[in-house]
Design a protein around this nucleic acid. Structure first.
Lengths: 344, 344
DNA sequence: TATAAGATTGGGAGCGCTCCCTAAAGTGGA
DNA sequence: TCCACTTTAGGGAGCGCTCCCAATCTTATA
């Protein structure tokens, strides 16, 4: 029956059983005799039959795919997360639907809408909008599309989150700089309204470290997490304050921009000035000089995040409370930092 | 009728019309009165109704999603393509299903299988396997899942492809080096079995340029498109042949590895040695020194590729022959190359 | 005013699958 | 051998949508 297409009926017909039996076999359910199961399995394999996921999705309202929203896929900072997410997805046979939000909330919303129409089981959002107001997240999670946030904050406590301890990380990094003898340490911060809150927390860590060392000379300049802005900020900063001996960039990409400016001013890293980055993107170790930085375990965070989302999706009792997970940063010492020169 | 879920029946009920009419409105089809259409549209908007894409997919066998297979999402080389693909997809309301093949054919196949089960309308493959044998592509395209290849070759002439003219690009780059007066130019090639054929074609361009300049001293060493391999290769090369004045790396990432080795040997770029990269990844302009390289218009290629795939998917007569598209490389001159020192 | 042509609308069937309920077949103990 | 119970299998309904065809309502034309 049913034309000549390869569907469950066709398999059933060939195997001489009913579609129900085939369905049971496909879904590995009990209630099928061994011989029958084996025969059906064989036919499925021979014909290279793939059940139609739309019909499946329609029938049981599950899709085995999750939506992944990322601010900028081109940014090496993100790809680390994605790789982790992707690995876990592959492992558990989930598909990933990808969308780019270009850092703006409206686009984020658009992506999410698209996903809902595309019926994903859940949504994973990594970092995200620069410009606040993500109230739509509440709607989303209320509408029982499970959401999980990586590297992002919200007020909504019921949305599970995976974050890194930015405060402690920054503290550790700046303390390291101060231990090296630096007295005048500048901080090129990111974007205070960024939804991850990373910039704010790291700045806090920076301040705490200075404070603990009895230094009250805070030099904080915005770099907006952009190479270009950090480049300019560095030029300005060094123009105005010649005695800075170390700069803490709140992202490696910004540090790369800063390095360029420092170079252009005829200064040497780390001899004249020490540079500390943040994130440990692949490139950090490849540039000249290799960057000392605070590693953020992005692959692990992505992997764990996807795992957590899957477990939420697959558990029957969705009411279980998922604890947020926090990772620690790790100081990776390379060649862009050294003991301060004993001058005066 | 039909429980309380928000579906086409519900909308129809509220609007006091039939589901058929609602369907027509949703799909923007003719045959609906203006008042009716307006009323339905309003209700849809008020209730924030999203048609279920599975039901749609089931009913008309279209999904508005494409599968994207990429070798390594973490590699900055790929993200440029992806961004272009993504932009075009968003524009035309297509979803992207992402998968990582980690350079191996088996994983590629696995991704594609997953996609088929996930019922994508078509598949876009960017570059891909290092290890030949992609006969499965024939099956795929025979099974009328349209496939489009970016930066990749196959024997199957019926699969549309988007490529860059690697031969001419490399020729142009090496000619530029030779015009600068370099006589001993080495080439760190990629991977000859890579499915893109990029390495092979670029090497050909390199050879042709040398030949045209009457130089028969070809120095070709494999770097396998890996930072680490290129790093080692460069060390070996410079150890053995001290008089090399320029090196052409067949990828920017390899050039970055090479730069590190050159630095470690106490050589200066571009004073002692000129370095030419290939691809023009974002980082090329940010490193020290900014890299002279051959730009590959990845964003455009991705965008065009997605566009071509969509047009294949949406045209009724799938038999139309799609011509392959070829892009040109562009020489981007920065600071890693200069005129050869007049020594002897 | 009648009537054909056209614009609207409604309803049924079907897309391929899962779930539920019932029927048939098999199993074992008295 | 019979009955109660378990295992295995089949069929119908439904998931939410689109497509096709027939029914109804308009409108224009003679």
């Amino acid at each position: 029956m049913k034309r000549n297409k390869l569907n469950i009926y066709k398999i059933a017909e060939i195997a001489g059983v009913s579609k129900s039996t085939v369905s049971r076999v496909i879904n590995d359910k009990a209630g099928v005799g061994d011989k029958t199961r084996k025969k059906v399995l064989e036919i499925i394999k021979d014909l290279n039959y793939q059940p139609n996921s739309f019909a499946r999705g329609l029938a049981n309202n599950k899709t085995k795919t999750i939506g992944l929203v990322v601010s900028d896929i081109t940014d090496p900072f993100f790809s680390g997360f994605i790789k982790g997410v992707e690995a876990k997805a592959m492992e558990d046979n989930y598909n990933i639907m990808l969308a780019n939000s270009h850092w703006v909330v409206e686009e984020e919303l658009k992506c999410v809408k698209m996903f809902q129409e595309g019926r994903v089981d859940g949504v994973l959002i990594i970092s995200g909008a620069r410009d606040g107001l993500d109230v739509y997240l509440n709607d989303l999670s209320a509408k029982n599309t499970p959401v999980l946030l990586i590297d992002r904050k919200t007020d909504n406590g019921s949305i599970p989150k995976i974050n890194v301890d930015n405060f402690s990380g920054a503290y550790m990094g700046v303390k390291y700089l101060l231990d090296l003898g630096h007295k005048k340490v500048a901080c090129i911060k990111g974007d205070d309204v960024a939804s991850s809150g990373a910039s704010v927390d790291r700045v806090l860590g920076y301040k705490k470290a200075l404070n603990d060392f009895g230094i009250n000379n805070e030099i904080i300049v915005p770099g907006y997490f952009e190479v270009e802005d950090a480049y300019k900020a560095t030029h300005n900063l060094l123009e105005e304050q010649k005695d800075i001996t170390a700069i803490f960039y709140l992202s490696d990409m910004m540090a790369i921009g800063g390095l360029k400016a420092i170079r252009e001013r005829g200064l040497k890293v780390p001899d004249d000035i020490s540079v500390l980055g943040c994130d440990d993107i692949e490139l950090a170790s490849l540039i000249n000089p290799p960057l000392t930085t605070l590693r953020q375990p992005r692959y692990e965070m992505g992997y764990k995040g996807m795992g957590a989302l899957i477990s939420i999706l697959e558990e029957t009792n969705k009411r279980i409370n998922h604890k947020d997970i926090s990772f620690n940063m790790e100081l990776v010492i390379r060649e862009s930092t050294k003991k301060v020169n004993i001058v005066d």
